[in-house]
Amino acid sequence: MLRRYLRTLGRFWSAAVAAEMEYRLNFVLATVNSLGQLVGSLFGLSLFYTNGADLGGWRWEEAMIVLGLATFLEGVSSTFLRPNIGRIVEHVRSGTLDFVLLKPIDTQFWLSTRNLAIWGVPDMAYGLAVIAYAGHRLGLPPRHALDGLLPLALALAVLYSLWFMLSTTSLWFVKIHNVTSLLRGILEAGRFPVAAYPAVYRVAFTFVLPVAFLTTVPASAVLGRPWPVSTPAACLLAGGMVMASRLFWRFGLRSYTSASS
């Protein structure tokens, strides 16, 4: 069962990468653009420190780790999440979701993994490079990176569930290209440690929108700072959100009536 899914995943992704390879120039352009964006983000962040302010007690290198994580997640979402969302909306609009439902494979799995865009790869690489550089500057032993793996996995689970739940709303609204911009807003907010925001924002980013879980928690783990929430609570939240995304999809599917059939 698991092997069958893994094999299918391999086929999906190799087909997607092969298709993307037709447009190599686009990949080069994406690499250059991502670099420009990274330089600009670092400049924007450095303005706080050149003017003598600090972000809620986070030092420059520490804040860089948060920015690196945000860049990495941005890359993950443009590689794995964004290319699929357009397809989901399109399937619902034109009624071809019928065919997907009939396939002998889990529908959520199919919808979430069918496509892949390699544009996000440069962002992922730059993000990791920034984290490595900042970690080196701080003199962190490399094994500290391992401490960040669990919270990073949780962050990816939270990001994925959030994205899939937002995509599910297309079953009712059909037109939700704007969902991607909401997701981007959340990632943009994650470029700064949560402590850098005023109290109202902090509450919203911890309890309403899971911004804190995406970047601040993994960064805190790497830096050995106390987490804003405890480990079991974070695990519970991530697990709960994955479950919720599944239940929400099942629930949404009940109101799917296909199109013109």
């Binding site: 706080f48 003017n51 003598g52 302010a53 600090d54 972000l55 809620g56 700064f192 850098a196 925001y197 005023p198 924002y201």
Partner: peptide, 12 residues
């Protein structure tokens, strides 16, 4: 939000 907090919190 970030700049307001920065101008409030630090001595800068």
């Amino acid at each position: 939000g970030v700049w307001m907090q920065a101008s409030q919190g630090s001595q800068a």
